[in-house]
Simulated scan of single mutants.
Amino acid sequence: MSEPDAGPDAGPDAGPDAGPDAGPGAGPVDGLVDVHAHAVLASSEGAAGAAGPELGTSPDGRPFYRVGDYVLHGVRYAGSPFMDVDLRLAAMDETGIAVQVLSPNPLTYFGALPPTDAVAFARSHNDGLAALAGAHPDRLLACAQLPVQDVPAAVAEARRAVRDLGMVGIYLDTDPAGRTLDDRELDPLYEAVVDLDVPLFVHPSPLGAEGPPDDRRLRRFDLDLLLGFAYDETLAVAALVFGGVLERHPGLDVCVSHGGGAAAFLSGRFARAVEKRPWASEALRANGFEHYYRRIWFDTHVHDELSLELLVAHAGVDRLVFGTNFAGWDSGAADAPAGDLAGTLTANARRLLRL
């Protein structure tokens, strides 16, 4: 279906005037590592067969980006840091970012594709993104896309991406191929990620089963991005903790975008539920919600000092990392915390990424 005036962040958190957000007073932080930056690759156009993706220009002159039957209008990828690496590096210099981790466009997780097409797209995308990062090894790192609808194929691609292509992490949707993150069918993938000794990054897609969000109330005021992402990220935290993923895979390092959605705000209720509700496992009840919650990594792309303080208070600082959604409409490239926290976020990121 075509969505004529899609919200400005229906792409990888992008807007029609996507560009770096280097506001006044955004002083550089030596060695700053940004773990939340999406890329769009010309080389992967058409790699998913009939599903695209496809970049083009509408008759009225607006750019569009087609993913399957969904058409995103008005977001400028070409000629922006999403696609032009020289613009990206210049913008990184302007905002004091030393190293950036590139990740797939959340529009192109392609969780509903036939497995053969999903494998082809993942291989093409990973080859292209790894080559882009490899051309600038001192500045750019890359995370892998996986054909997660076929878990054995996803495991094989994860191994290829890390061992052969040098990618530093794996990217997953909050509900990969329609599964919850605690679905035991994903356990072989988590085991492979631990074996490969790389982090897993979890970031939602703005698309529902038929393009825009399934809940029509989220199609107004960019609520798919403002509330829908937080909803999905909170569900991801619940699945990881309540669903026993971290209990079953104690060596798994998983980082959830945007501070984990509303999980910090809800952490008291989550902890009370673990104490009171019958579904809590014996280990979860014995160790408590916070024990597992503080094992998750979170990026600090939350836009507000009080929100960051709440995140620090509940999640701690040991697993917080700096993330920007670089070049998107809500880019936080100018929001690097000052003082001790800036150094802590950088040290944490280097630890998470095994740098």
Rank of each mutant, 00 (worst) to 15 (best):
N105G: 00
L146Q: 08
T57F: 09
D195T: 08
P212F: 12
P8S: 10
A47I: 14
V101P: 08
S257F: 06
P24N: 07
A144K: 04
L129N: 00
G251F: 07
A349K: 02
G178W: 07
R277M: 07
Y231M: 10
D9G: 12
F201N: 03
G228T: 12
M167P: 03
A177W: 10
G169T: 09
L41T: 11
L129K: 04
R160Q: 07
L113K: 08
G243L: 10
M83F: 00
G268M: 13
S331V: 12
D138I: 03
N325A: 13
Y109N: 03
Y293P: 05
D335P: 02
E305W: 11
V198N: 03
D34A: 06
H38I: 09
W329Y: 14
P114A: 14
G328M: 15
S43A: 15
A131Y: 04
L113D: 08
R184H: 14
V35T: 09
G74P: 00
P212E: 14
A239E: 15
V302K: 10
D253E: 15
G260T: 05
R220D: 09
V162C: 11
V168Y: 09
P28K: 06
P104Y: 00
L225T: 09
R220P: 02
V162G: 07
V99D: 04
P104Q: 00
D224I: 14
G211M: 04
R139H: 05
V162K: 01
L341G: 09
R216T: 11
F270H: 06
S267H: 04
P204S: 00
R354G: 06
E157R: 04
G328W: 14
P8E: 07
P106D: 09
L41R: 08
A209K: 14
F121E: 07
D335I: 08
G211Y: 02
D187Q: 08
Y293I: 05
I97Y: 13
A142M: 10
A334I: 12
L89N: 01
V317E: 15
A271L: 03
G316Y: 05
M83H: 03
S58V: 03
D84N: 10
N287F: 07
L345V: 13
V194Y: 01
R350P: 07
T108A: 05
P106V: 09
S44K: 05
G27V: 11
L320R: 13
E247D: 13
L141A: 12
D69R: 15
A239W: 13
A349R: 01
F289H: 10
V198G: 03
V274G: 05
S307A: 15
V321N: 12
D215Y: 13
D232I: 00
V256Q: 01
D224W: 11
R269D: 00
D86E: 09
E233T: 09
T174H: 10
L252W: 10
P115S: 15
A156H: 14
S331T: 12
A313L: 13
H203S: 01
G260E: 01
L186Y: 04
D318R: 14
G52M: 10
M167G: 01
L55M: 08
Q145L: 11
D222K: 08
H258I: 05
D117L: 14
A42Q: 05
P59R: 06
A131M: 06
F322I: 11
G332F: 14
P188N: 10
